[in-house]
């Protein structure tokens, strides 16, 4: 058991190192020079820079140090949480990220929980009678849902919920310039206001992720239909509902744990787009603004953070499996 955990930790440490090294080497290996003041669109702005100024700048930013020296200082900085300065805002990238992180985390968690819950229910309903019309309909709908890019789902919800029905706000994470008072009622009202703003973005991410959960649950449930214990439970006279909740669900759940971990990367990618449509001030909007400003320290930090987050989630899933597996073995 411990041997296997060590193996797992070792494997993931290699992957983490891979992400960190990619992050370090990408800007250095790709064409382009940080001291060429180019817009990258083929329209080079005329910023004349003399050879001596160039050497000075390169020395100031340690660009002419050997790569290994640069790598060492990069790793040391990373270790103390120094992600560099943002180009467009002149504040540390780490501060920017920390300020935006809660919004994205809230969106991620709420949407993951919703899509897992919705996916389990719909998937079990579909897989309960595999091959029947209800099953085929639900599976094809979820297939179509998976084929639609997140920003199209986001726009449809925005048009329906905010433009058409006017139930939800058009953009933003909270109502600005309002005086909601002080004290406990203030916090409650603020929380409600934020929840009201985040319903549409969270629903978008939940819908974008739900089809994977539906298909996994559906296949797992359909696979159970010939199990002897299920037939025994039916013969015992249990209602279908009892069979589904008490007997089938615990057997489907492990598949869902895997997916919960795997979806994280997809939801992170989706958040970039969805936060842009709804102007939620989270990491995704930060990334979108960084694209416009060619602020690559910010984008590097976002890539690093999302890469590490996804690896952590995958690691936890595998660890859970190891623990479940060994618990099962020892009980037997």
């Amino acid at each position: 058991m411990y041997h296997r955990i060590f193996q797992l930790v070792g494997r993931y440490l290699v992957l983490v190192l891979g992400v960190v090294l990619i992050n370090f080497f990408l800007p250095r290996m790709l064409p382009g020079d940080p001291l060429d003041f180019s817009t990258g669109d083929g329209l080079d702005t005329a910023v004349p820079i003399t050879a001596s100024a160039r050497t000075q700048l390169a020395a100031y930013y340690h660009l002419d140090d050997p790569t290994l020296t640069q790598l060492r200082s990069y790793l040391v900085d990373l270790f103390v949480g120094d992600l560099g300065l943002s180009i467009s805002r002149s504040v540390p990238v780490a501060d920017l990220i920390l300020a935006r992180l809660p919004w994205t985390l809230a969106l991620l968690l709420v949407s993951l929980v919703f899509s897992a819950g919705m996916g389990t229910v719909v998937g079990m309903v579909a897989g309960w009678t595999p091959g029947k019309r209800r099953d085929r309909l639900l599976v094809s709908i979820s297939g179509m849902l998976a084929a639609i890019p997140e920003f199209l789902i986001a726009m449809s919800l925005l048009l329906a919920g905010a433009v058409g029905l006017k139930w939800f706000p058009l953009y933003g994470g909270e109502t600005v310039f309002t005086d909601t008072g002080r004290g406990a009622s203030y916090s409650i009202r603020q929380a409600l206001d934020i929840a009201w703003h985040l319903i549409l973005p969270a629903a978008t991410l939940a819908l974008a992720g739900v089809s994977a959960f539906i298909l996994v649950t559906r296949d797992a449930t359909a696979g159970l239909q010939n199990e002897p214990w299920l037939i025994a439970a039916r013969a015992k006279g249990l209602s279908e509902r009892q069979i589904a909740l008490r007997h089938a669900l615990p057997n489907v759940a492990p598949h869902l744990i895997t997916f919960f971990g795997l979806r994280l990367g997809g939801v992170l990618s989706g958040a970039i787009v969805v936060e842009r449509v709804f102007s939620v001030p989270g990491l995704g909007l930060l990334g979108f603004q960084a694209i416009g400003a060619r602020d690559y320290p910010v984008l590097q930090a976002l890539f690093l953070l999302s890469g590490l987050g996804v690896l952590l989630a995958a690691f936890l899933v595998e660890l859970t499996y190891l623990c479940i597996g060994s618990a099962g073995r020892s009980r037997r």
Binding site: V19, L26, S38, G42, S269, R294, Y296, F303, S306
Partner: peptide, 26 residues
């Protein structure tokens, strides 16, 4: 196989955004 595992594990959109911003989006 190591490369494949690493590329499959990484979230693709943040990586694409980073690379395209560095090399210019044409």
């Amino acid at each position: 196989i190591g490369l494949v595992d690493l590329l499959l594990a990484l979230p693709d959109l943040p990586l694409i955004l980073l690379v395209l911003t560095l090399i210019g989006a044409t």
